[in-house]
């Protein structure tokens, strides 16, 4: 099983990114929590539809579970269509997010947790590094 965690940087010590479509990096781990891959998000600067494009990218990577801060409606629809499970509510570092998942502290979502364009506004705790709105 492949788990993708939204993060601001590469590695377990990086802070999680509250955004999905415009998050900086994904840390991919297996079900034992072993790191498989760190990838930067190619859709970070998309002019529109970043959520859809990022979801497509994650699906193409063969991911089964996404751990996110929040998720928008189009990204969720795309991930759901591929039977990718989305858990929201991560906080702290990538390592923290992983243990929150393993301890079953996250929420499995079927409805989007934020409205569209959330990531353009800097994304809550995710820092103000997103596109200017």
């Amino acid at each position: 099983m492949k788990i993708a965690i939204c993060s601001e940087g590469a590695g377990f010590d990086s802070a999680v990114d509250q955004r999905f479509g415009r998050c900086f990096h994904f840390v991919l781990v297996d079900s034992n929590g072993e790191k498989l891959e760190e990838i930067s998000n190619p859709s970070l600067g998309a002019s529109g539809g970043a959520g859809v494009q990022t979801a497509q990218f994650i699906a193409d990577k063969g991911v089964d579970v996404v751990l996110a801060g929040n998720i928008g409606p189009k990204a969720l629809a795309t991930l759901n269509a591929c039977n990718i499970k989305v858990y929201t509510g991560i906080s702290g570092t990538v390592a923290d997010a992983l243990s929150q998942y393993q301890q079953d502290k996250l929420t499995l979502v079927t409805n989007s947790t934020v409205s569209q364009h959330f990531g353009l506004r800097g994304g809550g705790g995710g820092g103000r590094r997103g596109g200017n709105f």
Binding site: S47, G48, G49, V52, Q53, A55, Q56, T78, A81
Partner: peptide, 15 residues
């Protein structure tokens, strides 16, 4: 270029 389509394994989503 507007990401209005997602092509998955056995599914195409149109936005």
């Amino acid at each position: 270029v507007y990401n209005a389509l997602a092509v998955l394994k056995e599914n195409v989503l149109v936005f």
